[in-house]
Design a binder for these strands. Sequence first.
RNA 1: GCCCGGAUGGUGGAAUUGGUAGACACGCAGGACUUAAAAUCCUGUGGGCAGUAAUGCCUGUAUGGGUUCAAGUCCCAUUCCGGGCACCA
Length: 888
Amino acid sequence: MYYNFHDIEKKWQKYWEDNKTFKTPDDFSNPKKCYILDMFPYPSGAGLHVGHPEGYTATDIISRYKRMKGFNVLHPMGWDAFGLPAEQYAIQTGTHPAITTKENCDTFRRQIKELGLSYDWDREINTTDPKYFKWTQWIFIQLFNTWFDEDLQKGRPVSELPVPEDIIKSGEAAVREYVDSRRLAYYDNAMVWWCPDCRIVCSNEEVLFDGSHEKCGNPVEKKNLKQWMLRIPLYAERLLKGIDGLDWPEGIKEMQRNWIGRSTGAEVDFRLDGLEESLRVFTTRPDTLFGATYMVIAPEHPLTRKITTKSHRESVDNYIKAASLKSDLDRTDLAKEKTGVFTGRYAINPVNREKIPVWVADYVLTGYGTGAIMAVPAHDNRDFEFAEKFNIPVICILDPDITDPEQKKKITEGREAWTGDGRYINSADTNTGIDINGLNMEAGIARMTQWLESENLGSAKVNYKLRDWLFSRQRYWGEPFPVIHWEDGEISVMDEKDLPLELPELEKYLPGDSGESPLANAGGWLEVRDKNGRKGRRETNTMPQWAGSCWYYLRFIDPHNDRQIFDPEKEKYWMPVDIYIGGAEHAVLHLLYSRFWHKVLYDLGIVSTDEPYRKLFNQGMILAYAYENETGARIAADMVTERGGKFYHTETGTEVKQIIAKMSKSLKNVVNPDDVVLKYGADSLRLYEMFMGPLEVTKPWDEKGVKGVFNFLTRVFRFFTENANISTGSDEDPEILKKLHQTIKKVETDIENLRFNTAISAMMIFLNLATKKGKVNSETAGIFARILSPFAPHLGEELWSMFGNGESIAYQPWPEVNEEYLREEVYEYPVSFNGKLRFRIELPLSMDKEEIIEKVVSDERAKKWLETGTLTNVVVVPKRIINIVLKN
RNA sequence: GCCCGGAUGGUGGAAUUGGUAGACACGCAGGACUUAAAAUCCUGUGGGCAGUAAUGCCUGUAUGGGUUCAAGUCCCAUUCCGGGCACCA
């Protein structure tokens, strides 16, 4: 019989749709639940690419498998549909982004349905749907109305914020200012990255290290704009601690830890000679205070101008101006030379009361720590480089733990920086009474911190790299902020009952070039008046794309609820997400932001878990073959032909090299899933995506591989649809039975461990045996159809119904492994001599060690090797190996 | 520079976590079927040496060393490739 995958797949897709086979019941009586989530896509105009089905197939296999295991499975899909491309298209053509978005979603939905993925389509969500973003706005209001209680390490409603007496006395405006300064969401001037090409504000994360915009590649500039910010650093400690308990890939966890960037040290106050103020610094090495020979203050530090003496004013002003014009690229370490100027001011080193110069230099950043440092050139590479350039003394105060006398000498003489451990020298002062000489680094830091605290000169301090999250964009196609700016300066959020605030219709979507959002042209939409006649203007910024994706997993739980964000009972049942699969490109930002929002919602009692995603898995990227000539120039794939395993340019005939590269339009090596489905069917596409290799690795697409799995499915179909191959009796070949149960077991553990490639290989091995034997009984056939069905669901259903079963295979119980069939009596031992395999011998597993040795040593084949030396030992590992150790 | 991964046949990849390296698949070669081709099926396939042959031996998991009865797997050093971070004091 001919494997007509096209008809089979259409038939079952229709069946699943008509019968709503995968609709998830709101029935919480089943204690076994599993929430299996994909990172929902941005529906681009280009349609699905083959990277999408990789993760989707993986979650689909798990979902189908879990259903067969009796779990109540939540497996939804939706669209992260706000974003630039639709808006860019609107600017060019005048088409409303909602129209483009709808078209793209329709394409994506059609393509996904053609892959036979078992989503509950009744739960489909779209971030651009006002019914959805109503709740995104609602969460923003919660953030606005929350402050972080440092003592309890917990977010709390601002209504519970204790306001100091003196502030209450100063009047309403002061109270408002005080409260606003503690909200998790706040509105403030911020130096932000501005992309003149996209006319959009970018977050730090969207600016590449070379100073270009991640989205368009053009250079970005700095601009000072009023922006919405979220105080994510307040949750830094919670976000960091939470990582430990997560079943996530270690690499991703490490990336999040690095991003949060916790570092412990101390803040120390340095008195400034001739001024009232002192200069506070953060250091991770308070132990090196005796080596501090100068200080550095960042150009943007509020004290910089103030501490500068008259004679140095001009040079410092010039320096500050120059620094402000520099891009961040120029300020990073890629710019070879460090720069800086002396302020003319001296500070007093608290440990020995010596005067040290204060410099201004842009290698110190305003945003981190206190924006000023004490510089210890002997024990910090950056300070060393700076001191060398400006001839500042380098005083070694730590005798390094190294043996190389040459290097040791260099370090102690201040000709090289040493950042490792050692014993302190020159680190005592009789006037101030501190002495850490002879201690090692750990003890030195502890002693010095203690001393600073006791003398009131400083205190232990923890700092994080994580910065406030810039949460607004000057775009049209995003969630409007439910915010009103009143004429008297008050900023308020809308009443929850008035949500959603929908986007106004506009004639032009082009943003202004001064950093204004297109919404600034929205006319009447902008104007608001309260019941007392006070005038207000709506916020014209919109939220970034992260907003909608930060919490979508919660809405899937109860997507049509218009009274609540979700029903708390349902949330309690389904959360947390049991497995979350998607690309590693979201390792830091999406996952960190999402965890942050979740923790706030947890603190407010809205969600029941502290973390949203229990297990995370990243699928690897799918690459494609590409070609280059001997000069390294890339050749488009349609210009290359293959002959005898070599590749040639179709026009010039010269040989070209096959390489592996990302799929791109210019290389003409983009694989469209629609084409694959048309040619080989959805089941083949699914199977190939899983068979290519481990889910997490980057791997190249090869159409020949698709043919391989297509062959397998064809052979499955032909074997099981041939009546002569299926016996009706209950007798089964013991070899078939054993292999069958091995296969069930292998497929089961492989699915649990997301090793789909080897699960498929196990099924291939089974089919090879069945084909060889030429016959299996109907029970075996039914079992095979069931274990195949999560991978190739259309074929699974087809076989199942052909075997005369009425209902869908989707909820049939997963076959039980019968250990009885797996038991083995004998084992073919490999026998090696001094670790080299020489022959094999079949022995009963019940045989004890002595007998085994005797049997092996007396074997005819062993003679030859035993003569080569004297027997000293025989290692017998039951069910593994026998190794005979000989000595000469 | 720092932090994570990784390197196994012609190719994608297996290897029970220290115990038969190369499962499964692709490709290739030979054969069957066919007027022929495609499709399909069967056989072989890491490299080398010897043999008509069954087979036997040597060698082999990026490189060099080490631990062990035994190393693709563990340890040390090196090279290359991928990802992330980047003056965070």
